[in-house]
Simulated scan of single mutants.
Amino acid sequence: MDWNLLGLSFATVFLSELGDKSQLAAIALSGNSKSLRAVFLGAASALLLASFLGVMLGEGVSQILPTRWVKAIAAIGFAVTAIRLLWFEADSTQSEEA
């Protein structure tokens, strides 16, 4: 296992996820909590664990599948998601107007 690549991947995923769902969950929980430290530690731990699992799973998949397959699967996944978002958004807009 390439530890430099693992560390770089982990740091990249960690930084990209900082302002994501974890931040919104921490803000929502801190409004009702008496212990802000517990909310912070819980959110930080969850983010670290999610980032770690993402990096480990990605590294494992890269060892099993060829790079070309991973790129093709990712491209197909993004294309399907984009088509579904565009297609169903147009359908829901038309049904609301009727």
Rank of each mutant, 00 (worst) to 15 (best):
N4P: 02
L6V: 14
S9L: 09
S9T: 04
T12P: 01
T12L: 03
T12C: 01
S16M: 11
E17S: 06
E17V: 11
L18F: 04
L18Y: 00
K21C: 03
S22E: 07
S22A: 05
L24D: 11
A25G: 02
A26W: 00
I27S: 02
A28D: 09
L29V: 02
S30P: 00
N32E: 04
S33P: 00
S35G: 10
R37P: 09
R37C: 05
V39D: 05
V39W: 05
A44I: 08
A44M: 12
S45V: 09
L47M: 13
L47W: 11
L48K: 01
L48M: 14
L49A: 15
S51M: 08
L53W: 12
G54F: 10
M56I: 14
G58I: 06
G58C: 08
G58R: 01
G60Q: 13
I64T: 12
L65R: 14
L65D: 07
L65V: 12
T67R: 13
T67S: 09
A72P: 06
A74N: 07
A74Q: 04
A79Q: 04
A82M: 14
L85R: 06
F88E: 12
E89R: 06
E89L: 08
D91L: 15
T93W: 10
Q94I: 12
S95C: 09
A98V: 10
